[in-house]
Design a protein around this nucleic acid. Structure first.
Lengths: 204, 204, 204, 204
DNA sequence: TGGTAACCGAGACGGTACGTCGAGTCTTGGC
DNA sequence: GCCAAGACTCGACGTACCGTCTCGGTTACCA
């Protein structure tokens, strides 16, 4: 697993793996305890039992460290990034969006998720990394499920899969970000129904 | 136009209007020049020719100042927050979303918009203010247009208007935030078509 | 009492006298405890209960602070910089040089004195300050005593007073600095005898 | 030529002579370019093309390296440490002190000399080394010249030679260190005259 | 119509964290 | 086992801003 953004020079494999792990662990703990804004490089270094320079040597910014910590934790989990495929598209999408809504609604995720989103929003390099390592794989897997549904005749032949994906995730994300309302199973089902209504086979 | 959040005590109307304006102007300029992260209260004060205390007296945080500056600039514009109503819902929504897409795609808006979104994302008080003064009015006005369309039979009688609004704005916002693809008229039209397909009168 | 070297800008009498005193006291204590080399600005600030910036605002270097502390302590003492004048030059000079030798031999003075000398040696600005505030007055007062002795016929009419002063203090300083031998009353008396032998009235 | 102070363990004669020379050369160059204070072990190592550890292995401190470099350069020169002996003490001493004054007045020597003196002043081990390898031989040779003069009746029989030596070098050093006045032939002659006046054969 | 109280510009203050430098130690790979 | 290279922990550097706190000075309301 590579760091978020390579510093220009320093890098062979002389890197100390213990330090790297301690830093990511400390960053993860501290961002949960303090929030991103009150987090400092000095505190990460102290908690990790590491010199500040060792952080600056391998990461370009506080955001990059926290981000790397987040990805390191989530990449394994979503290694088994397998969507359900029962043959019933509606059921599978409801399962998917209900889980998504559940995660967004989880207060534990909320703090970290907002901090990360704020970073990613602002720093193009972090966004690229985030896309590459988390978001794009998720969207791809979703698109795949939709494609097989389209081939099975459960979506219109001319359905635009990118659009479909964004119609699914966009409204949830929008509601979450602006706290427009509850993120529950009912809402997930509504969104799925709308997407199926829009892109489902003609008569639906 | 009131400041974002009132400091506890100090505020008669002895407030110096020139200072207030100079501060907001300076904040707007500096956030454009430096970005939000490199902006500091001291720089705002220096640029505005104002003592730091004058800022701390009237605003609780850097975010609040910048935010106030942003709102001061945008509130007037959207004072005439009137959606088109030609009678043809599809046409009106296409106009609305095309304009929205255009704004999001504007590089000048991008930097400021991302900075503000990052702040709003992280600070609940700012989010509340943002909701109250910009977002909610926009959503309300959109919902109103949809309601009149529903009454005119251009939407299903049981169409959920909140859902409809989020189906319209959510995908655009999602695509913008993650830079998933171009934000152009074509995409706006696709989203509108999908929403009409989902919530339009039964046979569509 | 002015600081060693004025920083360019920060100006007036807005200066906090309490902080100034606390800094000088802390510096004096710490240089005695740790020696000059192990002394740091951070430790001075911590001991004085003062922000680092307050030190950097008013002094250009660690050396300048310590130096100011030293001068502040010694200027008062030598305010009564009065040499004995019994009418007997030999006796008066022996008294003077014995005291000087005693001070140089004092281990408490040794550490501070060497640290200060090393600083003064290396930094022309500090040397100028040291000359102006401590050394020149001492030399002047010594020269005055010699002048009155010359007028009284206890020195040759053509005796060079600057030379005389350096003949008195130079050997003591040289012996002290290089630890060439004991600095005691006997040595002081020898030096005085030599100077009187060289510059005393012809027949002596 | 041995290093200033031996590190405890490592020293067989497996030592790399090329590295040693490169380090001393680099140190000498850098102390001239940057002065002692801005000199660092890392810069010496970089300039010499040597690992830091190689310096730490053989020298205990920055001061020791620079000092070793200084001695390495000066020991050869003063290997032929021979004072003139024309039979005329006054002439010989004038020659000696004029040369000494000239060296002290040389701006090129001034920087290095002050840096070294400051180190030697502060570090007892360096002072011992300096005494042993440079100063004591010089003083001894001077003392020898005075002794032969005393035996030739050019000094009083009871003249204290240590005192005489310090009377000669002390004033010059004192004037140099505190920049009290010009260090020229005239001043050298004055000092010599005074010493001869004080310690010369009875009648003058 | 003068007091007086608040705002205001300015900027010093005690702090926290920054990002960099160098110290001295340790590890790796080459000779 | 010395060496070049350089990563490591640690501590201090000097700077930037934080948010608080005086300082005059200048309004603007009240007696």
């Amino acid at each position: 697993m590579a760091p978020v953004t390579r510093q220009s020079a320093p890098d062979p494999n002389r890197r100390n793996e213990q330090s790297r792990a301690a830093i990511l662990t400390a960053a993860a703990e501290l961002v949960a305890e303090l929030g991103f804004a009150k987090l400092t490089i000095e505190k990460i270094a102290a908690r990790a039992g590491v010199g500040k320079q060792t952080i600056y040597r391998w990461w370009p910014s506080k955001g990059a460290v926290v981000f790397d910590a987040f990805l390191a934790a989530n990449e394994n989990a979503s290694g088994s990034l397998a969507l359900p495929d029962t043959g019933d598209l509606g059921e599978d999408l409801r399962t998917l969006l209900r889980l998504t809504a559940l995660e967004l609604a989880d207060p534990a995720f909320d703090r970290t998720g907002r901090a990360l989103t704020a970073e990613v929003l602002t720093d193009p390099a972090l966004l690229a990394e985030y896309r590459e390592r988390l978001l794009d794989p998720l969207l791809a897997v979703t698109r795949d499920r939709l494609r097989s549904a389209r081939e099975a005749g459960q979506l219109r032949a001319d359905a635009d899969l990118d659009l479909a994906v964004e119609l699914l995730y966009g409204p949830l994300h929008y509601r979450w970000l602006h706290r427009l309302g509850p993120l529950d199973a009912g809402y997930a089902d509504q969104v799925v129904a709308a997407v199926l209504g829009a892109l489902g086979p003609a008569g639906d």
